[in-house]
Lab assay of single mutants.
Amino acid sequence: MATGGRRGAAAAPLLVAVAALLLGAAGHLYPGEVCPGMDIRNNLTRLHELENCSVIEGHLQILLMFKTRPEDFRDLSFPKLIMITDYLLLFRVYGLESLKDLFPNLTVIRGSRLFFNYALVIFEMVHLKELGLYNLMNITRGSVRIEKNNELCYLATIDWSRILDSVEDNYIVLNKDDNEECGDICPGTAKGKTNCPATVINGQFVERCWTHSHCQKVCPTICKSHGCTAEGLCCHSECLGNCSQPDDPTKCVACRNFYLDGRCVETCPPPYYHFQDWRCVNFSFCQDLHHKCKNSRRQGCHQYVIHNNKCIPECPSGYTMNSSNLLCTPCLGPCPKVCHLLEGEKTIDSVTSAQELRGCTVINGSLIINIRGGNNLAAELEANLGLIEEISGYLKIRRSYALVSLSFFRKLRLIRGETLEIGNYSFYALDNQNLRQLWDWSKHNLTITQGKLFFHYNPKLCLSEIHKMEEVSGTKGRQERNDIALKTNGDQASCENELLKFSYIRTSFDKI
């Protein structure tokens, strides 16, 4: 039985969820670079991206490699990797027998973001014989899940209580170790020597080791999670996991709180800001991140802002960003909400898709409305799209047979046209069989910064309504002859009103 693990408890099935942008060198404390989270699957090609990484700022997932063999891993080693800020997950990587050479110096898994409450997941690794993470000293947050690894031993010899604050939620089941077939031998045991430290858990006094050649490092209890030197002297209180010299914040392997210019500090002093819960960055760093993602459509890219001495992905609820200094300031009234469309555009074809934009005031991208039916549609669209004030790209209304009016965009005031449909149009209306009105132009103002209007096959939309939009939106004169079809717009509506004058002759039985 794995020490510190839980057996036999019912657990939810383990679901495996399925960018080499360097964020800056980590400095003297770390020998390499800070790398983003990685999802490495199918083959070993991307694994080489770990070569210079000291910190993975995010998670590391290595999974679904069915053609790899043990010899493929023999020359692979990433000794610079010290810390993973989120979680480490391995799933069905064939041929991998140990992690001792792959990650010989991995010391800390912070667990800032977890995989279903777990910071370390080893699942269905069919050839893994031992973990071998002999320098792993601290899992700051989260638990361990090690399950269905039929060859995995050296679990009962690990004292997880020396690595985690609590072992109650560890789930370590259905491994070879369960069948008591392992016969784990710690260093020196074969020669009758006791080389590794022994600890007591559940009444068992057991030597602690990761492999037959690597003991588990056990520091004096007084050192807590700070770690200790090879001689057993406690590291500085700002260290986490390990250090090369005692009581020196510049000799830590990793930091308990924050890293700044080669030393570990309790908090980031001005003019620095907390970033990702582990390091200090200056304003320029946060500003660069903001600008890199301002026009990016890459998933996970955030326009970072500053709030409460932190550089964070977005302002919290009730705050909006001051564009001059990136500071989050309290909103006066309802907060603006910028919604970034991942692929640059979004099609609204149902109430469900409209709900995804609920509360958005600025759309960074283009909207395509293609709704053919739905219950209580006008009210639903207004509830979900009615706060949109600005669209950076274009607005396209296409084959939306259920629409009679666009009044559900009740606050839309600006279409920038930074991206144009077919390279020309910022407003595009095609084949809307029941569209009769755009907006009530006596109450609604709309500016279209650039781009043209396109109207074709809107049989109940009168040309007068379209011409009014040209005047109000500032697009009059931009359109070419064929942009607004004269014969297919309003051709099934009563669009022309003329005053009919009647004269009559009164007659009676005795007068003409």
Rank of each mutant, 00 (worst) to 15 (best):
139 I>G: 00
103 F>N: 00
156 A>R: 11
61 Q>M: 04
30 Y>S: 12
100 K>N: 13
168 E>M: 06
324 S>D: 15
186 C>V: 04
315 C>S: 00
269 P>G: 01
70 P>Y: 05
95 G>L: 02
322 N>A: 11
156 A>Y: 15
322 N>W: 06
264 C>E: 00
90 L>F: 05
103 F>T: 01
335 C>F: 04
243 C>K: 00
198 A>S: 10
164 L>Q: 05
31 P>K: 09
161 S>C: 05
270 P>L: 05
99 L>Y: 01
275 F>V: 03
191 K>I: 12
162 R>K: 15
286 C>N: 00
57 E>W: 03
152 L>M: 15
317 S>P: 07
325 N>T: 04
305 V>S: 11
226 H>N: 08
202 N>E: 08
81 L>V: 02
52 N>I: 02
255 C>W: 00
336 P>F: 03
311 C>I: 02
166 S>Y: 09
114 L>W: 02
135 N>D: 07
66 F>S: 07
93 V>H: 12
80 K>M: 08
119 A>P: 01
265 V>D: 00
296 S>D: 14
183 G>I: 05
206 V>Y: 03
195 N>G: 11
251 K>W: 02
148 K>P: 01
71 E>G: 13
322 N>T: 07
132 G>D: 03
258 F>G: 02
335 C>A: 07
220 P>C: 03
108 V>G: 01
145 R>S: 10
116 F>V: 02
219 C>N: 04
156 A>V: 10
66 F>T: 05
75 D>W: 05
143 S>D: 10
125 M>Y: 00
217 K>Q: 14
28 H>A: 06
228 C>Y: 03
113 R>F: 07
175 N>A: 13
190 A>D: 12
94 Y>L: 11
166 S>R: 06
158 I>G: 04
184 D>F: 06
200 V>R: 11
262 G>F: 03
270 P>G: 02
98 S>N: 08
298 R>M: 03
248 D>W: 02
322 N>R: 06
138 N>R: 14
125 M>K: 00
83 M>N: 01
333 G>D: 13
194 T>F: 15
79 P>M: 03
203 G>D: 09
333 G>C: 03
107 T>V: 05
42 N>W: 08
169 D>R: 12
309 N>C: 03
29 L>G: 14
307 H>W: 14
290 H>L: 07
98 S>V: 02
286 C>Y: 00
153 C>P: 00
171 Y>H: 08
210 W>A: 06
324 S>R: 11
198 A>E: 15
207 E>N: 01
287 Q>N: 07
154 Y>L: 05
233 L>C: 03
100 K>H: 15
54 S>E: 08
28 H>T: 08
282 N>L: 04
164 L>E: 15
280 C>T: 00
68 T>V: 08
246 P>I: 06
293 C>Q: 01
203 G>N: 13
303 Q>F: 10
72 D>V: 08
164 L>D: 15
87 Y>D: 00
271 P>K: 03
276 Q>R: 08
104 P>H: 00
274 H>G: 12
309 N>Y: 12
85 T>C: 06
28 H>V: 07
316 P>A: 03
124 E>I: 00
136 L>M: 02
272 Y>G: 01
334 P>R: 12
80 K>P: 01
32 G>T: 08
216 Q>H: 10
137 M>E: 06
254 A>I: 02
33 E>R: 15
244 S>M: 15
242 N>Y: 12
224 K>E: 14
119 A>D: 00
300 G>A: 09
331 C>V: 14
36 P>W: 04
258 F>T: 02
237 S>F: 12
314 E>N: 15
204 Q>F: 15
63 L>Q: 08
219 C>Q: 01
143 S>L: 09
111 G>P: 00
77 S>F: 14
190 A>T: 11
279 R>Q: 15
148 K>T: 03
134 Y>V: 15
245 Q>A: 08
320 T>N: 09
141 R>F: 09
143 S>K: 13
207 E>V: 04
70 P>T: 07
224 K>N: 04
57 E>S: 09
160 W>I: 02
151 E>R: 10
287 Q>W: 15
184 D>Q: 02
77 S>T: 13
329 T>R: 13
330 P>Y: 11
110 R>T: 04
130 E>T: 04
68 T>R: 14
166 S>T: 15
130 E>P: 01
320 T>F: 14
110 R>G: 09
77 S>K: 05
165 D>W: 12
303 Q>K: 07
63 L>Y: 09
317 S>I: 09
188 G>N: 03
117 N>P: 04
284 S>P: 03
242 N>S: 12
111 G>C: 02
286 C>L: 01
209 C>Q: 02
70 P>F: 07
98 S>C: 04
174 L>M: 13
41 R>F: 14
307 H>A: 03
282 N>C: 02
86 D>N: 07
203 G>P: 06
240 L>Q: 05
205 F>T: 14
123 F>A: 02
30 Y>C: 13
185 I>M: 11
222 I>T: 05
102 L>S: 01
108 V>R: 06
113 R>C: 13
240 L>S: 04
220 P>Y: 05
299 Q>R: 13
336 P>Y: 08
99 L>H: 00
322 N>Y: 06
304 Y>P: 02
235 C>Y: 00
321 M>W: 14
104 P>T: 01
85 T>R: 14
162 R>G: 04
166 S>P: 10
103 F>S: 00
264 C>Q: 01
274 H>V: 12
163 I>Q: 03
225 S>V: 05
260 L>P: 00
329 T>F: 11
79 P>F: 03
329 T>C: 04
218 V>L: 12
81 L>T: 07
208 R>E: 08
218 V>G: 11
229 T>M: 11
